[in-house]
Each structure stands twice: as structure tokens, then as C-alpha cells.
Design a protein around this nucleic acid. Structure first.
Length: 189
DNA sequence: TGCCCGATTAACT
DNA sequence: GTTAATCGGGCAA
């Protein structure tokens, strides 16, 4: 039986937590899979939502680590983040893609697709497949409906530039599971 | 108040 | 390769 991730797991810098999340298992109401792609957003990062200070949308980022920050993207999609670092640092890790392992039927129904590879390969797709919405903003990650389990200790992680941003786009703060077929995009190197 | 743009996706040509 | 869908934050007036 895999080990549950304690809340203390998130009480570190996003640059440590983000690569460590690769290979971990994320379940939401018993549906989910293995995390294969994430991005780190530090509060000193111009691309981070928290960069310009607290607002009603990003308030959760300014709270304690180990909680979910869910926001609406482009007015259409939901995106899931894990809040990190000591309280008030307002840094978070964006979950970009998972490899579906549990609740495949529910995910296919919600996404209207059968192709396993397209179910959760993107931040918006992942939230649709797991039925995560703004209603779940601020929930603790170490209690239901969330379940997080540690992955294998030795995992090959690759890094590269983040996707879909214009500010600080040169920073290599996107992390992925090497060779995974479930990434939202290939790593160039 | 009004305007622009974004941590996206899918359906086009 | 391009574009529409759609809405809240941020900034100018």
C-alpha cells in the first residue's frame, strides 16, 4: 500500500515540491491517477497569480500550504494548484497532467472521450475528468475528497520552460515524467 | 466604467 | 497554421 503524502510535504519551496510530485498519485473522489506533469509558480514570479498581491480569487494561495487553489482559466476551464511553502508565501504548483489509473469510466463519461491519452493531459482536461471546480477551492489535500500517495522514490524527472505564459517564460519550471505518453506537450530536450 | 488580456481547449483551414 | 468560447483581474480614465 503506497504511503499517503502528509501535509508537511507541501511545507517546502515550490521548486522542491514540484519535481517531487512527479510520480505521485492524485485521487479525487476515488478518481485520478499518477501525476506526470506540473509547473511551479513562486510568489516572486511575475507569471504567478499572487505576484500582484492578494485578491478574492487567489486568497487561498496566501493561506497555509497543503491546500487546493482552483481558479477559472480563460473563463471556461478550471485549473488545480497545490499551495506550498510557509503560510503567506503565496507559491503554488499547477497540476498539468496525470496518467489515468482509477475511475476510467467516470472520466470518459465526463470528458466525452474514450482515448485514455486525452482524458487528463492538460490542466483544464484534468479538472473536467476529475470533476474539480471552483467549489473545491480551499480544500485540504490530506483529507477526502482528495487522496495523495507518494510515488516510487527513484523517478526520472525532466524540466523545461512553462506553457501558455508570456512573463518569465524562459524559466525552466515545468517538470514532467521522462518518456510519459500522458504529457500535455513533449519536452524538447 | 470600459477595455485588454490570460497558468486553455477544441474545432476549424 | 488560426480562432472562438467566455469571465474575472488589473489598469487607465
Amino acid at each position: 500500500m503506497p504511503k499517503r503524502l502528509a501535509r508537511a510535504f507541501f511545507s517546502r519551496s515550490v521548486h522542491e515540491v514540484a519535481p517531487d510530485l512527479i510520480g505521485a498519485t492524485l485521487l479525487f473522489k476515488r478518481v485520478g491517477g499518477r501525476i506526470v506533469e506540473v509547473e511551479a509558480y513562486h510568489h516572486t514570479d511575475p507569471a504567478a497569480h499572487s505576484f500582484r498581491g492578494p485578491t478574492s480569487r487567489n486568497a487561498v494561495m496566501f493561506g497555509p500550504p497543503g491546500y487546493a487553489y482552483v481558479y477559472r482559466s480563460y473563463g471556461i476551464h478550471w485549473c488545480l494548484n497545490f499551495v506550498c511553502e510557509p503560510e503567506g508565501s503565496a507559491s503554488a504548483v499547477l497540476i498539468r497532467a496525470i496518467e489515468p489509473t482509477a475511475g476510467l469510466a467516470a472520466m470518459r463519461r465526463r470528458r466525452g472521450l474514450t482515448d485514455e491519452r486525452l482524458l487528463c493531459s492538460g490542466p483544464g482536461r484534468l479538472c473536467e475528468a476529475l470533476a474539480i471546480t471552483g467549489a473545491h477551492n480551499g480544500l485540504a489535500l490530506d483529507a477526502p475528497p482528495f487522496e495523495l500517495f507518494a510515488g516510487p522514490s527513484a523517478v526520472e524527472v525532466v524540466a523545461g520552460p512553462r506553457i501558455g505564459i508570456t512573463k518569465a517564460a524562459d524559466k525552466p519550471w515545468r517538470y514532467g515524467l521522462k518518456g510519459s505518453h500522458f504529457l500535455s506537450k513533449r519536452f524538447s530536450s
